[in-house]
Design a protein around this nucleic acid. Sequence first.
DNA 1: ATAACAACACTGGTCAGACCACTTGTTCTC
DNA 2: GAGAACAAGTGGTCTGACCAGTGTTGTTAT
Lengths: 256, 256
Amino acid sequence: MDRSDDDTAATARVSDVSGAAKVIAYVRDKLISGAFKPGDRLPGERDLCAQLGISRPLLREGLRALSVLGLVEVQQGRGTTVGRADIGALGDALVFCLAQEPNVVEDVLQVRTAIECQAIRLACTSASDADLAEINDKLETLVGSLQDPERGGIADHAFHLAIVKASRSPSLITMYRAIEPLLMRSHVQRRRLVIPDQDVTLHLVDSHREVFVAIVNGDPDEAERKMREHFQISARLHRARFLKMARGDTERAGAR
Amino acid sequence: MDRSDDDTAATARVSDVSGAAKVIAYVRDKLISGAFKPGDRLPGERDLCAQLGISRPLLREGLRALSVLGLVEVQQGRGTTVGRADIGALGDALVFCLAQEPNVVEDVLQVRTAIECQAIRLACTSASDADLAEINDKLETLVGSLQDPERGGIADHAFHLAIVKASRSPSLITMYRAIEPLLMRSHVQRRRLVIPDQDVTLHLVDSHREVFVAIVNGDPDEAERKMREHFQISARLHRARFLKMARGDTERAGAR
DNA sequence: ATAACAACACTGGTCAGACCACTTGTTCTC
DNA sequence: GAGAACAAGTGGTCTGACCAGTGTTGTTAT
């Protein structure tokens, strides 16, 4: 979000706020208050711009901004409706935005860690038998796909998502889904950069299993600890690629 | 991202693509090709709309969409520059998605817990002296406002926000700020319903202090434990209101 | 009475031209 | 050389007109 607009949007009733920001604030207030629900039809553009006291092109600017975030859907001849909270669209927008920002993507992993560590604690007490079966299923799939970066990345993510779902917290799940495309991309890229190695693979499988066992045992502290260990192992694996790359460079220099 | 625009943006050279989508595609292509880098100045609006063969309001729609995603920054009198994308857009849109869920006011506390517990771990190692001073300052303010539900809620939130800031993780900070409206609603509702009580107040102050001390001591596990204890104390305080309400109802029945 | 077609009303999509406000650069005066 | 005034370039907004798509209503034919 453009920050200057964001700050001023918070005081949308002040008359010096830009026109498009008025639209954003109007819709924001209605969404947060619950007055607008998914599928609701907004007033027509001519009515809405009269209501907000701005011109139609400005109104359209604001609506365009909201539509790019999936918060409204604008259709010619039909009108503008409140979006159905399309988390996937949000995640795709994020991938588009952050494709060139590897440092930001690394930091987003902090959010991932936060969510998963809270989720696994909740899963220890909230997970149903079906949830546990689902996680186990994803674990088996993961084990069977460790040699393939694409399928491995997908399976890894599915395992983690199953744990988040087992938390039974809608907010955590929503949040996780928002960063999902980024995580997927990150998983797959990381796997492409690392040559699979027997020891590492087994170690990784064990780590996933220990996470699952901790959930089944139902001890939140233990489960969180295992999850954090798991992330550390992954991070070490990621860092190990630099050693291999460094050795690779040395060998090339020697060959000249 | 609005799907129809996103799909059509990929084929921007087809002449039936909407005007704003042309802008988005133009900037996207330049970013991907590396022709545009953060800080670069885009051509002026009049030049750009001539170049793209669209009207200026349409161009502005497209730029507004890009600005809401942080990809460009538009400043009156100065021009439009390429932004350094961040996850701000995700944060702002996410609160809308969360707001649409039933029971969000209670469940968002899981997100809050997740973020704060991860943030406090990071704060133990990342916090500067200024960060620690800031948290301490907010703690003193909190102590001075416990008798006032409104100011107390604000001070409580400021204390926690200072901790999240001390994590030095832009993503965690962004997410935390995004859920602020929902947290404020939660805080205010909770505090209105509780009559402050001397013992509880002191216990609450101690809990906040222990959290701060743990950060200063720099032990992530200990700090997280203290934070979770703090949340449990708050939850107990919240549950205590039901006892008081039950007693209140009984007294009223006796009076009739 | 029902179905098909046409007309109308309402919706968003876009344009051109005008004017306002802000920023930066250039020129003039002291 | 410094400061003020002016000009040029930038974005911000508006009005009114017209185009294109969708849904509803009315008319006509069977």
